[in-house]
Design a protein around this nucleic acid. Structure first.
Lengths: 340, 340
DNA sequence: ATGAAAGCGCTAACAG
DNA sequence: CTGTTAGCGCTTTCAT
């Protein structure tokens, strides 16, 4: 037998603006104003409303607000695999930028497969105002389809008609190749990433161009998977290639490769120089620590969040492509070749 | 001058169930049923509704659905710092379990500070049905307050009146200490985590108990921060302690410590054995690779998601405390002491 | 500066 | 099996 006359709240029922309004003796709309446009309401009544609101432990009902305003104030960040630590900086900086405009960034794990990635995107798509896709594996068409429904920005890949933030490998690669050339290397081997990876192709282009410029030979081999284990599995082929320097599609590959080679008695960097891509968390856990071509992840994160927000607010209309610069982080895994 | 009579949709306006209903010549509620309880509607009409729905590119309005049903079908995972890779497995497994019940898990980064952690929690709290807090830094009271509003489960910490999933360090620690004793060590040093860390205290308890049992001396020193850098900074003190074996509060500390010591010419594990906690991603990047006491993160994730879901569905009523077992992962960083 | 009233898109009784 | 109706909690004109 619920009694409705007193001020006492049932401990489970959440207070609504109606409750606050009644308790404060004002109209619900005034409560709403006091909360959203504090300046448009008399200071005294506002203060009183605020007080009763916290007294009743009132929290705005998010869903109702979203239904009415059409905006969730939330951005979704989708990463194809959280096991790749690459996205740390992206999440942090995207979150920072978003918070400035009162937005929240949530990360959703798209697990391994391409299909789950799309599924995840579709799951959250109507709970967010915009989507940031990092190194997505789904098809261009899928991405363009998503973009019909929400604002989307893609990181680490170029998609027609979609805003993208992509690292330009040229600078970092040219630094790397010059370092290698200066150290007397003649032939550099690229361990490629997934066959369809847009970034892998881009990186290989940059490497072969830089090698040509420096009069080095560039060769390329495929990897089974862009993981530590994939790196291990490619070790034999690397050794057999006769190259004295290797650049891998990412740091995970480099780490696996380095370990496997070290187990086989190959001294890094004396017998073989190794350079990775991304400068991931953990790149400096190895011995020697890994020399790597770093993409400014934080910057990618803040730029992409900024881009989504700008599209949302209408500041920016057409798709933009933003390039960010890469740079070589020199550590111990690359050096002069000192024979076998 | 908008015309409402034709079937053509404005390309920006999203279709509602009303549009679908009108187009399909049925009532909105029938559309709703067809979508949510397919079996409660005539197969033919259902098929027709589905067809028109995809034809109109219809997507359920999440906010409206949430407002009506009171359930977001979303769980929030809050981690105090995404820079700590510990949560990989938690997110993945929690997501898997949640997906089985048609829930989505989103991760929100609580950045560095305790205050931001609480702020993040409050931000998402009304956009989710439940919250999983991993190694939260906020006060017990704050957590209990959150639990008044939402279902919450805490991982890696015990909080009065709240459901918790906590790793019991005893098993892993006893394996570690026995390994150390078997290798001739006499004194083990514990490098503690943050002063207020519940887990750190728990781990120290387990270590001193195990050492006593094995007739080893246990000593403890503090660290500045539970990070790689914190590990580096504690290296001098570790060396000065005269201990031949060290267990650190987490792997990050162990890695920093190991590197700094190696730089100073200390051979691991010959001159000093090092054992970490957590077996994080990257623990095997080091040389020697890190021996570590692993908490079953994936299991913690799936259990906590299960717990939240169970509370949500009313299957479980009272707060539960679930223990998960730890185990020693033996790699190269701990071994027999071979003198200085 | 505040009140009254309508409606966002959906679901869930209740009828029929 | 399907239609009618009411309402979730909030914002937002429009009045006053």
């Amino acid at each position: 037998m619920p009694s409705e006359e007193t001020t006492v709240q049932s401990r489970t029922a959440k207070a609504t603006i109606y409750d606050v309004a009644r308790q404060a003796g004002v109209n619900p709309s005034t409560v709403s104003r006091a909360l959203n446009n504090p300046e448009r309401v008399n200071a005294r009544t506002r203060r009183f409303i605020e007080a009763t609101a916290i007294e009743l432990n009132f929290q705005l009902n998010h869903a109702a607000q979203v239904l009415q305003t059409g905006s969730t104030k939330t951005l979704g960040l989708i990463v194809s695999d959280v096991t790749n630590p690459t996205f740390f900086g992206i999440l942090r900086e995207a979150g920072r930028v978003a918070a400035q405009r009162d937005y929240t960034v949530v990360l959703v794990n798209a697990a391994e497969s391409e299909s789950k990635e799309l599924a995840s995107a579709n799951r959250v798509i109507n709970a967010v105002d915009g989507l940031i896709l990092t190194s997505p594996r789904m098809s261009d068409t899928d991405i363009q389809l998503l973009a019909k429904t929400t604002q989307v920005v893609v990181i680490n890949r170029e998609v027609n008609g979609i805003s993208c933030v992509i690292p330009d490998p040229d600078r970092g690669v040219s630094q790397a190749v010059r370092l290698l050339a200066g150290n007397g290397h003649k032939k550099v081997l690229f361990v490629a990433g997934p066959e369809l990876s847009w970034m892998s192709a881009r990186r290989w282009d940059a490497i072969s161009a830089a090698c040509e410029w420096c009069h080095l030979t560039a060769e390329r081999i495929e990897s089974a998977a862009p993981t530590v284990d994939g790196g291990r599995r490619v070790a034999r082929a690397v050794k057999a290639s006769g190259a004295t320097a290797v650049i891998t599609h990412n740091d995970l590959l480099a780490i696996g490769l380095m370990h496997e080679l070290q187990n086989a008695g190959v001294v890094i960097p004396d017998a073989l120089s190794i350079i990775g891509f991304d400068d991931i968390f953990g790149a400096d856990f190895t011995t020697p620590s890994l020399t790597s071509i770093r993409s400014p992840l934080g910057q990618s994160g803040s730029l992409s969040a900024g881009l989504v927000l700008a599209s949302l607010s209408g500041t920016v209309k057409d798709p933009q492509t933003l390039l960010v610069d890469t740079e070589l982080v020199i550590r111990g895994s690359a050096g002069p070749w000192k024979g076998v």
